[in-house]
Every structure is written in C-alpha cells, then in structure tokens.
Design a binder for these strands. Sequence first.
DNA 1: GTCTATAAACAGATAGAC
DNA 2: GTCTATCTGTTTATAGAC
Lengths: 217, 217
Amino acid sequence: MARNEQKSKSTHDPLINAGLRLFGESGYDATSTRQIALAADANISAISYHFGGKEGLRLACAENVAKTLTTTITTFAAIESQTPEEAALELEHIVSALVQMLLLQPQAKTIPQFMLREIVQAEEVLDIIFPNFFEPIHKSLSQLWVRATGQDANSDAVMLSLFAVVGQVIYFRVSREIVYRRLKWDSVGPTEVQTVESIILTNLRATLEVAKKGSSQ
Amino acid sequence: MARNEQKSKSTHDPLINAGLRLFGESGYDATSTRQIALAADANISAISYHFGGKEGLRLACAENVAKTLTTTITTFAAIESQTPEEAALELEHIVSALVQMLLLQPQAKTIPQFMLREIVQAEEVLDIIFPNFFEPIHKSLSQLWVRATGQDANSDAVMLSLFAVVGQVIYFRVSREIVYRRLKWDSVGPTEVQTVESIILTNLRATLEVAKKGSSQ
DNA sequence: GTCTATAAACAGATAGAC
DNA sequence: GTCTATCTGTTTATAGAC
C-alpha cells in the first residue's frame, strides 16, 4: 500500500518532459498534442486540464527549463577573487563545457534543443527564459571577461565579444548539418568535437588578447 | 492587345514569392496553403497544380533561392591573383557585406530568412541549396583564407575557422532578440549594426593573425 | 485526475466545370 | 490555367461520465 504503487500518478510531469523533447525535436507547430499525450502515456485532455492548452504546455516547458537552469547558475560564483589569468582560464572552461554539451550526444540533450528552437522562434518563451537564465549567465561571463581583459565593465564591446564567442558554439550546433557536409564528416564523435572545440578556444584566446591590448592602450 | 494586358498571368511566381516570405516569417509548419494562396492572390488549388503540393512549393522555393544566389557567386572570382593582404581585405569585405545583409532591414530580406529557417530545419531543402550555394561559397572563401594565412588548403582547420567567422554573423541574426535585450537596444539601425560589424571584423583579424603565425612556425 | 466521445475548425488535396 | 465545391483526415479543445 505504498504511495508510489498507486496506478494514477499525475501526468503533469510526463507531459512536460514529452513536450520538451518533441517541441525540441520537431518544433512547436509540427508537434501535435496527440503525439505529446502518446509519448507521455497520458490522455489528450490532460494537456488542457493541467496547462489550459497546447500553448500553456509550451510555457510550462519554458518555466521548467528556467527552473532547471537556475540551479546551474550557482557554478559561476566568487568571480571577484580571481586573477586575470584565472578568469581567462575559467572562460575557456565554460566555453569548452558549452561545446561538449551542445555538440556531443545531440539526441539526448532535450533542454538545449528546446531552447535553441525557442531562440529562433523568439516569442513569449524568451520572456520566461531570458531573465532566469541568459541574463544572469551573461552577467557572470561579462564579469569574467572584464576581469580577464581589463575592458570597461558592461560596455557594449564586452557583451558583443561575449556573444560572438557563444555564437560560434551555437552556430556549430544549429548548422551542424551544413558544417558536417562541408567537412564530409559522416558521424560526429569526441574526436570531431575536439577539433571544433580547439578552433573555438583558439579564437577565444585571440579575441581576449586583442581586447587586452585595446584596453591597455 | 498587348500580351501583358491579359488578366490571367500565371500564379506560379507569385506563389513562390509568397511561400518564400511566409515560410521565412513563420516557418513551414506554421504556414497554411490558404495563407500562401491568399498572399499570392491565387487559388488554393494552384499550389497543387504548379508544384504538386505544399512540400513541392517548399522545394520550388529552395530552387528559386539557389538560382538567385548562384548569380551572386560570380563576385568571388580571380582569387588566385591576389596577394595575402588583398585576400585578407577581401575576406573583411565579404564578412562586412554579410553583416549588412543579415542585420539591416531584417523584414525585407526574404531569401536570408527562408534560408535560416531551412538551415535550422535541415531537411531535403539543404540538398538543393547546399551544392548550389554553400559549397561554392565556402570553397571560394577557403581559397581566400588559405591565400591570406598560408595554411594548408582544404584542411579541416581552415574550413572550421571560416565557419566560426560566418557563425558569429549568423548567430547575431538568429539570436538578435536575445542580443538586443541584453544590450537594451530598442531598435537596431546602422549605428548598432556598425558596432556589431566592428566586433566581428576585429575577431576576424585576430583569427587570421593567429592562423598566420600557426602556419609559419 | 482521468477517461470517452464529440464538437468545431482547420489542414492539404482533388474532381470536374469552365 | 483557374475556378468552385467538396472530400478526407487531423487539429485543438471541451463536455460530461466515472
């Protein structure tokens, strides 16, 4: 008579997980509520019951992403105590982790996939994810960048340079079909990802160097 | 009795133009054939008649894009005759042109918008656009890059570096909502685009420098 | 909270007149 | 080549039994 033996667990969470996965794989418009209900082993009407409709499920997915990611942010702490060299190294580590997360095991990472779809779509979901994730992440990274280069904090140049670095990573994920065709890579494993990572890290170091010189002149 | 006075011009081209615009604005799945027919001032059944269906229209749009872009490629000619300095300068010009095209007048540029959607979607359309556009463009740019840096032609490093540069530009377009929120830019005019362009060109120069040193060691 | 049944609107496609 | 009319299937949403 344990509580977890009861047959009818709420379908709330399974629906969010299925929505996250299917919206990410095929896009919001190409995914039907029937597919989601089937994948979540739930009834179609459960979507309306729990979330008020398909759009409600989308927003619930976004809130789930924001909540999940907020717990990750604590990683970027104690930035003030670092030397410029440490800050540069930490930037490299973060970029490296981003590359590994986005390019390796592309099928398993539902949250990045969902986020990338919504970034391109650029609608209400950004209002949920932006203040809870992008803004704090960008602020932390900006502090690291400032620490590493000596540039003015919160200047447009710092933020844009940061976006340029992140953009390279995002692009290799979003346009991976094109990249892999051009390079004639059949499959993408750790070796290929390592090659991409080293290019991006080289660019990061080069950009940091230029930024340092620029701020010390 | 001039020929262009006849009431019934073919709806073939208007349908492609409407498809290009609407697929680009809202995505393929979110656009209905009725919307397209309305926008093209044509009958719904004209889509089946001319293209065999909605998917046929999508491919016809892709072929139209490929055809339009092929004429642009002639710009990149006579690369072999350039000095390294000229090659680097030409790369800067091309990147600059790409920034201007993608970031300025975002609502008017239907072809880039359609292409960006299809890049993310990554299906059969790429088979049409890739060999006719991306591959020749990338080959020409690779030659410029090799000329500018002295790196090995057709090495993975050259192609990936190139993708990294292009990726920054694409990212600023695809994720412009996020970038502009972070920078608190209300609208994006020539001044803002100029700022983005200078960051990207600075990165390009820094990357070229590093690549040059790497190949001469 | 979950189910069945069904409503109401919409999708893409097509037959056939002109 | 374009039109009207309609078919067939699917979509999201909901009413109501349990």
